[in-house]
Design a protein around this nucleic acid. Structure first.
Lengths: 224, 224
DNA sequence: TTTCGTCGGATTGTCGGACAACCTGAGTGT
DNA sequence: ACACTCAGGTTGTCCGACAATCCGACGAAA
């Protein structure tokens, strides 16, 4: 068996969905912004039905919301939504931490942390956010359960909608990385309870931070 | 504000998806069975594009699987899939049990158990399965997190694909209900660890049962 | 001034038809 | 046994169409 260059077998629908997803994560599309089928079809040079399918994929992930007969808009997360996302993440990532303390290989987590630390040296905010969330996903990966990882991915994906629209302070980056290092160290030393409470603390702080930033944004341009 | 009778505002796509979902859960459609777009469009008397959208919804839930350029088939769960589903359920439902032992109101769980017990008196297998899974979902509901409940719902939905194709032994029903009663009692008495290990035991046994039944089925008509 | 119809434009939801690309299996030849 | 070709069925994507629905504006009526 020879190795061959991968051939792109993605459908047009997939590519449109992916392009939209990228635009959502970079903040090129803001929460609440309407996504008109004909405009998108025109912009992407594809048929309206193709756009509709792509939008339905994104709607399935909760990134966009369909309002019957009124169209699709970029999902606007309420404060309750954000609280729910962090609550769900705590459940999944805590389970991951427990799995890690029960013998799962921590190397992928360490690797994700290194990537994250490296990313903070750069200035690409979307890249930093991605690497950060990747670390948290790596915790869930410790469970070796693809379905839970997928759930965690959609959760962090939804969260990125809120993160993209606010400027994360670079100053926090160093502090953040230190937080994660501490968490990993606790896991390595087998201090499960310590790691769990550190994770709880970290997520609670992050939630507060996102909450605050969303409130600030809404104060300027009030949403729903 | 007066109360008005609810008006059906569902789209054709939704209704087709719902009809297909019901057929999947009752076993009218079996795992591996191909779902041809034109046949379905003809059968439901709707356009092909409508069927495509409905199928994409179901694919998003993992109930059907798209094979590019080859069509959609009812998802066939492998042994690994089943193990994953039960593993994920253990994570979510354990978290629910913990929430229950920390003061969450157990009334909905008790209610779900009563409904389940009542259903076992009847002979509608799909109804019994539904009530059973509803009980487990009620555990996750204790977390008060709609996103996690949704995740649990898709997990149990996927599981129903496997359950629908095998005849569950009625004999087990009584034993099953007793299991759940014991679990609820442990939660009520505040014995969190006992409840958690009871849940683990129950899910492990259930997984073994499903595994065995799937193996039996595959021995008759081998799948992939 | 506020409330209530109504009207027109814009958009979605659904339909039908069309066609190229693709997959599969059967047949054919080597 | 293997490689090739061909035909039929199916999906992926496009286009055009039209009813249903929503929304804002405008004007009439209370």
């Amino acid at each position: 068996m020879v190795t061959v260059p991968a051939i792109d077998r993605s459908s047009t629908t997939d590519r449109v969905a992916e392009a939209l997803r990228a635009m959502l994560f970079t903040g090129e599309l803001s929460p609440g912004e309407p996504l008109r089928e004909v405009s998108l079809a025109d912009a992407f040079q594809v048929a309206r039905s193709t756009v509709r399918e792509a939008l339905q994929v994104l709607a399935g992930d909760g990134l966009v919301t369909r309002y019957p007969h009124r169209g699709v808009v970029v999902t606007e997360l309420t404060g309750d939504d954000i609280a729910e996302i962090f609550g769900a993440r705590l459940v999944l990532e805590s389970a991951g931490v427990r799995a890690g303390s029960e013998g799962a290989d921590l190397a992928p987590v360490a690797e994700a942390l290194a990537t994250y630390a490296a990313a903070t040296a750069g200035s690409d905010q979307a890249e930093i956010t991605h690497a950060h969330l990747e670390f948290h996903t790596s915790l869930v990966s410790l469970l070796g359960n693809a379905r839970l990882v997928a759930n965690a991915d959609t959760l962090t994906g939804d969260l990125r909608l809120a993160l993209a629209s606010v400027e994360r302070r670079r100053a926090n980056a160093r502090q953040q990385v230190a937080d994660h290092r501490r968490l990993l160290r606790l896991m390595k030393t087998g201090d499960t309870d310590g790691a769990l409470s550190e994770l709880d603390r970290h997520l609670t702080a992050a939630r507060a931070s996102v909450h605050e930033q969303v409130r600030e944004r809404d104060a300027v341009s009030p949403g729903s």
